[in-house]
Write a protein that binds this DNA or RNA. Sequence first.
DNA 1: GACCTGCTGCGGCCTG
Length: 743
Amino acid sequence: MTTSTAFDRLEPRIQRWIWRQGWTTLHDVQERAIATILDGKGDVVIGAATAGGKTEAAFLPIVSAITTEDGNAPSGFEVLAISPLKALINDQARRLEALCDMAGVALHKWHGDVADAAKRKARRQPGGVLIITPESLEALFVLRGVELPRLFAELRFIVVDELHAFLAGERGIQLQSLLHRIEVLTRRRVKRVGLSATLGDMQLAAAALRPSDPAAATILESRSNEAELKLQVRGYQCSSALGPPSDEEADDAPQQLVATRQAIAEHLLKVLRGSSNLVFAGTRQSVEVYSDRLRQMCEDASIPNEFFPHHGSLAKELRHDVEARLRKGRLPTTAVCTTTLELGIDIGDVESIAQLGPPRSIAALRQRLGRSGRREGKPSILRIYIEEEPINAQSSLLSRLRLSTALSVAAVRLLLTGWCEPPPQRALHLSTLLHQILSMIASLGGAHATVLYQTLCATGPFGNISSSLFSQLLRRMGNPEVELVEQAPDGTLLLGREGERVVEHYTFYAVFETPAEYRVVAAGKALGTVPISFPVRPNDLIIFAGRRWEVIELHERQKVVEVKQSRGGMPPKFGGDSAALHDQIVKEMRKVFTSTDLPAYLDAQARALLDEGREAFRMVELDRASIVADGASTLLFPWVGTRRMTTLAMALTAEGLKTRLDDMVIIADHSVEEVKAALAHLSQNVPPAPLSLARQAANKQYDKFDRYLDEELLALSFAASALSTDGLPELAAAMLIETNGTS
DNA sequence: GACCTGCTGCGGCCTG
């Protein structure tokens, strides 16, 4: 440690803690973070891989700074640390305990599972570090508004863990709003430190950390070398003659799909057995199918099972068992999982990653890849498995294009260039703004409209809300049909009847919606939850938690499904929205089709599939045309992402066409000539306003509090978040030119 | 045809 000047600047007790860890050097990013956090005035973003020492990089200097400040017991929290998961708070607290202890700094964890007594104690004697979820912080604002100025009077640092998890979505805006409201009540700017995975442009992380002044942040990225990448894309296209389909699935899935899954499962068993791995299956249903199949195969071969399911609808205990087994690393363990194992939960290093089905987000793919090859000298291993259906002369063009194969190749090409999606463009977030208005009124015991606007919009994170739109929203909230707020004679806004009902319920604090569910219980033990929308009746057979069950009883009132072990069954359908594709990925797919190289990372079957796709692409001259007749309908290939596809389809609808949307294609129930006429009109005119397109869309309720908005507010919200008419005439024109160019 | 996250106060009962 003799060469480290950063080390010398730490408080002696912190230095002693470092010695005690047996560390001989500090990571490069830790060295730089110590200097930057102790010196600088501004914010800091620390970017490093999972387990890259980010937590220590932030907390060594921060704890050092608050110990040296004064010897007296503080009368308020000095550090506010926000984390997106309860499990991460527990991990974090475990890692920081000894450090804080040694430095004489208090450490309080605070989330829904923390005992009431500990929370009361923290409120009575606030000090040191508070680690908390956004929802629990929200609850503090709503329930303890009067105490907050005292609790945060001595605040010196705000740390946001897993900052990248807050980049998109309502939860991120909620967090920005809460942090801003803290600075409003303490009347000073508090230094923010964000800890993030290194994904794409780190300036975007700085903007999420402090939207009002991203330039004030210093960005520190870990310089650690990335591991070598070993990569394979494996194609599967089985006819029904191959593989023994399991009898139970045969009713639901086509025979060849069952055979394909069998072939993929056999390969997974062969290459993954004996080591620890993660298999990202894409959907919870697919997790259930594969983990059940793999367990069955182990049993049939009389070998111990190493394959376990992990997804958000499984009971906490079951998930913890899998995480602990991976972390301990004594037994070979493969988790078949959804995005639940993408975030920084400590599961140690794994040998390889498998991705079932084409990746739809490069950011997520990079995040997954970061889970393997972390040990010195070990490569990252990624296998992508693709299913395509058998084709014949009658098959549709969309099947013959082998879109899953092309998408996988496009994703790998982008992964290798280092590109990844930026977070989606800023939306209006009216649902969360409505929530924050209610929260502020509850917290302050009433507030004037100008204070709300000033705090949340003029200086806060809802900066793209005009004062007239804000008034429109407030009027709606005060509408006698809605009754969220009412106005006192002096103009102060108070909670209305419905407002009180909503705010007083404990479900108020989270800004995201969760569907109603049944709990699944076997012999008194919780297995997890299934959506209410999934029909279950007594005697039904289901696959759940990687095993097979029979439903004994359905307790409708308690929302409990009782099951017992059984044979056979179907996995539940969990539902969900479809994922959006970014422009860049679809653009890259077109390049994959028009180029001729066969990358070495494709196996023989995947090469054959890619060849077939390219052949189909050339046959209909998609390299020169974007509009293809397909029976009575016409297919449009704009080669743009979901957002611009949606906009184009809605613009065509406004031109009087009947259209449907697929991933890569718009299907119009019209002749090529009619489609061309509509495109020509779009290309020659000022694009329609997104709002007027949005007004014709059905089902615009997406977010938790959208149910309180009227049609016009919903249309505004939908237009801002789902549509983009930028370059629409040019897109229409380009599609026509290419098409006409062929004649 | 995708995924994930989170939550308070209080009444009632049991144990030492």
